[in-house]
Design a protein around this nucleic acid. Structure first.
Lengths: 162, 162
DNA sequence: GTCAGTGCAAACTTTTTGCAACTAC
DNA sequence: GTAGTTGCAAAAAGTTTGCACTGAC
């Protein structure tokens, strides 16, 4: 789907959500949705704030960002993650299901897809629970940090031998 | 394994970790480890602080709790979760692998086990990444909230009909 | 004796809240 | 016109940091 089509579609979904829940269709809300759907990958509130402040887009306050984010989560247009210190968000419409690898050393987050895993999770029978979405976070060492550690260990051994 | 045995074992693991990394074996650190290993399920810093302040155990400051928690994570004796506002922790030694269901409405977190799912995740081939541990969070509605919503919807329909 | 670790309070970061002004309906 | 929204600033909540003191080694 083309980028503009996606933006139009999510705007429509958002409009329906706002109407259905008696919320107003303010220009701020649409500007925020538009900006979010022009970001690839994760973002936090501060990044979004700066992005909207810098570009000619639209100037909105942090409070409005937080308010709108809640609406967008409820409208299933974005999902929230909590790795690291601040909350991270990502758009959820027209994006492939993916999982997250988080390096416990440098904090780097990478995404990966795995259909088999996806199937396994989605076909899990849950008791007393109605699934909406899920997040799988895999923690460990990225190749860069693993290599750095190896080198460090080697150096330490050399020191000891002296 | 008996509770006391577990506590002895983790204390030993912690001792080895501290020695290996040139950290001191302070009474505060062991008191914190002991308290954590007498808690079932999740806890946050504040809960731990209150628990240790109330009981005769040992009085430690929040700063020390944060410091020690980091050591315990690195020693693989506890793992960190980030649902809701504050970070949650749980002991990881001698506890069954489990996944988390989080109600998006009331925030309640429940654990469940599923060996098939566990196998699927653990057998996933990762590229450029060395797995240490993982967390699967399933979001949705708990049965209580799902029922409450149904009732609410019904009432709204009745109102509209008037 | 030395320096890592501790307690305390202050600082910092992220998020929430109260309130006056604004505007979508 | 009115009530839901916005922006701002203040407050709250969670975590980190600086510093003097303590105690493990």
């Amino acid at each position: 789907m083309e980028s503009q089509n996606v933006k139009d579609t999510v705007r429509q979904i958002f409009t329906e959500y706002l109407s259905a829940n008696g919320h107003r269709k303010t220009p701020e809300r649409y500007a925020i949705l538009d900006t979010i759907y022009s970001i690839d990958g994760h973002f936090d509130i501060d990044t979004l704030y700066t992005l909207m402040a810098d570009q000619e887009n639209f100037r909105v306050s942090r409070a409005t960002l937080y308010n709108t984010i809640i609406l967008l989560i409820n409208a299933h247009l974005i999902i929230k993650h909590q790795f690291g210190n601040s909350s991270q968000y990502e758009r959820s419409y027209d994006r492939n299901t993916h999982h997250h690898q988080i390096c416990t050393q440098c904090g780097k987050v990478t995404e990966f897809q795995n259909e088999e895993l996806q199937r396994a999770i989605e076909s899990t029978k849950l008791t007393h629970f109605c699934l909406s979405h899920y997040s799988l976070y895999i923690y460990g060492l990225c190749s860069k940090c693993a290599r750095a550690n190896k080198r460090k260990k080697k150096n330490n051994n050399h020191k000891k031998e002296k």
